[in-house]
Computed example of a mutant assay.
Amino acid sequence: MHVVPPEETLPLPEEEARRIDLLWSLVMVGMLGLVFVLISVFGGVAVPVLLALTGAYVFNPLVTALERRKLSRTWGTTLVFAGSTLALVGAVLYLIPVFREEAAKLPEFFRRASTQVIPRVEALLGVSVPEFVNQRTAELGAQASDLLQSAGPTAASLAARFASNTARFVTTLLGLAVVPVLGFFFLQDYPRLIGLVREVIPRRALGLVSRRFSEVDDVLSAFVRGQLTVGSILSVIYGTGLAIAGVDMAIVIGVIAGFGNMVPYLGTAIGLVLTMVGLMLSWQGPWQLAVVAGTFAVAQLSEGLVITPRVVGEKVGLAPVAVIIAVLAFGELFGFVGILLAVPFSAILKVVLRVVVQRYQKMPLYTGEAPKG
């Protein structure tokens, strides 16, 4: 978090502070819009740069902490970069076989679900489901199974077509290859980049603008670092508990439920539905239901009482309905990229809106007082 030096905290007249805050708000909204424009027009260049900047932002606190321990910025960056690379490679090498095995089960999973879930629900509840529901469920299961079986060849065909467009293929490969290089240099020069931004801010406005960026930093760090950490922890809890319960597709369901938690209620709801389907297909006894219930209870209580308060806190402060609306709206306007950026951008816009409202509430138009002077 940026700390404003004492010499930057000189009080400003209300009218001047209002102008600075409103200008800062306009600049922030313009920058968010510019990000989407650059991604849309220059995606091959903008996306790698954005990914590299995000990586530098995420790992900067670690390098800064190493600097405080008398390690040079270059060596700290090298150490963090090497450690994160090894961790990523290790995770990929471990997860690829696991997900490949899980993905191979998907066609059979949907085929069994389409033929076995309805009869088991009927036996459990003691009611008969209309025949058209059975038929439609069987058709959907068969279609899903066929779709998944053809996903591999289809993906290979799309990859071949994409590779045939040499310019696009080379640009994509270069973009992916350059991300680690850009990330390393952005991380090494992070304080210098922040210094360059500070140098262009008028001196009288520096203190106020620095505080506003500190508020944005609080929000972004809470989401980018916090939510990813929370999602990882919850994925481990869900995946481990469901695996112990012997539920089919335990790891996939755990990852969906864990990282789906970024959108309130969505991850838990989807994870619970998939778990119930998997539980019906792998039923071994009531003990499984107890383990599943315990897993979800532990995950939800840990997330609400321990993980989120300690890792994220109340810095993002977006209401669940606001997050859901933001994801839907940004997804409709900007597609998959919009879904990824919906929550962090909405959190930044919340800071901007709060600043604008605070300034408006001090204006004579709101207070009803006569203008001074």
Rank of each mutant, 00 (worst) to 15 (best):
A205K: 02
L174S: 09
Q188G: 03
E215L: 11
F186K: 05
L176G: 12
V200A: 04
R211E: 14
Q227H: 13
G183C: 07
E199P: 05
V216Q: 05
G207S: 03
S210K: 12
F185D: 09
L193C: 08
G226L: 02
D189K: 14
V197S: 11
L173H: 03
G195S: 01
F184Q: 05
G195P: 00
V219F: 03
V224Y: 15
G183I: 11
R225T: 03
L208G: 03
V200K: 07
P202Q: 09
L220T: 00
V216R: 05
V224Q: 04
L208D: 02
P180N: 10
V219T: 02
F223R: 00
V181P: 00
R192S: 13
F185K: 07
V200D: 00
A177V: 13
E215K: 11
L196A: 14
V197M: 13
V200Y: 03
R204A: 10
V219P: 00
R198C: 05
D217I: 01
R192Y: 11
F223K: 01
P191W: 11
T171E: 14
R192V: 14
P191S: 09
L174D: 06
V181N: 09
F186G: 01
V224S: 06
D189R: 14
D217R: 07
R203H: 12
G207V: 03
F186I: 08
V219Q: 00
R203V: 13
G183M: 15
G183L: 14
A222Q: 01
P180C: 11
L220M: 13
A177G: 13
G175F: 07
G226R: 01
S210I: 04
I201W: 00
G226N: 02
L176Y: 07
